[in-house]
């Protein structure tokens, strides 16, 4: 059973720090007035998936030293590109080189998995703050732009990534 990845705990942006108290008040107001809409959003038939959505996973960053930054369908639908930024070059050195460190992408619509890489993950020496990529064959068009996918690596996963 894969771990569930918490996504709320990593919001450290300047906006979050500066606006906490104002946002608390404003947010409560918005929640009250928007409650009906929220109910529709959360329990309605289909969430609105926004292309380019990329949650973050502290667990993956802690274990593998990388942060996924980008998922897109490319090559006229024939390939999928996944990018990650190196947070900790020591932990990221073997990222992708063994089955237990290799990311794969799973369609949340039907569970189709893509894991056959076309390019990427060759370089053992990675540098911090640099972004690297992996290209996959988009087998049977499994990953679709604007649809949710899960990135799984080892026993961790990052859900609700929405591909460009």
């Amino acid at each position: 059973m894969e771990k569930t990845t918490a996504v709320v705990g990593t919001w450290h942006g300047p906006l979050g720090i500066a606006m906490n108290r104002l946002a608390l008040a404003l947010g409560l107001l918005v929640i009250l007035s928007g409650g009906l809409f929220a109910g529709w959003r959360l329990f309605g038939p289909q969430p609105k998936w926004v292309p380019g959505t990329m949650p973050v996973s502290p667990e993956i960053e802690e274990k593998f030293g990388v942060r996924f930054t980008f998922l897109a369908v490319t090559a006229d639908g024939g390939m999928v590109e996944l990018r990650y930024r190196v947070i900790d070059e020591g932990k990221a050195a073997n990222f992708g080189h063994y089955s237990e460190t290799a990311p794969l992408v799973i369609s949340e619509d039907d569970g189709k998995i893509i894991d056959v890489t076309i390019m990427g993950l060759h370089n053992h020496r990675v540098e911090p703050a640099r972004t690297y990529y992996v290209l996959y064959r988009n087998t049977e068009g499994a990953i679709k732009s604007g649809r949710p996918a899960t990135i799984a690596v080892g026993d961790l996963s990052l859900k609700h990534v929405v591909s460009w």
Partner: peptide, 17 residues
Amino acid sequence: MRSSRLSRIVLLLSLLL
């Protein structure tokens, strides 16, 4: 300054909406 978990959730919910 770290915000409480509650306030962060509220903030995020409000931003979402």
